[in-house]
């Protein structure tokens, strides 16, 4: 239950799941459609937000909710991921947060997190 949700093939080496070899220049239709979907959704947020907010004043509640969105997004992502990793995940996450708070250096925080989960994996 360590890495939930994904079928084994999704974590396998490049190309194994799809049954064909993936080279540097491979472009599969399903991947392309997912990328275009993401690009469209993102442009909708970037440009649609400007257009919509200019055309009509959104309700105050919507505006304030959008301002509050970033924190809950990352928390809602991190919580299940850490729960799946177990106690060592939460410990490593605490070290990441402490490193980021002290050093203000994203690279250092990520490195500490990866090193911590590796070390805990050896002893826990």
């Amino acid at each position: 239950m360590r890495r939930r949700r994904l079928p084994p093939c999704a974590r396998a080496r490049p190309g194994v799941g799809s049954g064909k070899t993936v080279t540097g220049m491979t472009l599969r239709l399903d991947v392309l459609l997912a990328i275009l979907g993401m690009a469209l959704a993102t442009y909708l947020c970037r440009a649609g937000g400007y257009a919509l907010f200019r055309a009509l004043r959104p309700p105050r509640f919507v505006e304030v909710t959008l301002q509050h969105l970033p924190g809950p997004i990352f928390v809602a992502y991190v919580a299940p991921a850490l729960a799946a990793a177990g106690p060592k995940g939460f410990l490593a996450a605490a070290l990441v947060v402490a490193t980021q708070a002290i050093t203000r250096n994203l690279a250092a925080a990520i490195a500490v997190g990866v090193a911590a989960i590796w070390l805990f994996g050896l002893v826990m």
């Binding site: 890495r3 990352f74 990441v96 947060v97 490193t99 994203l106 990520i110 590796w118 994996g121």
Partner: peptide
């Protein structure tokens, strides 16, 4: 362990937020 980099990135982003 390198897969944890993604989760670690979001944990770190939470600090300035």
């Amino acid at each position: 362990p390198l897969y944890f980099a993604a989760t670690a990135t979001f944990c770190a982003i939470l600090v300035p937020v």
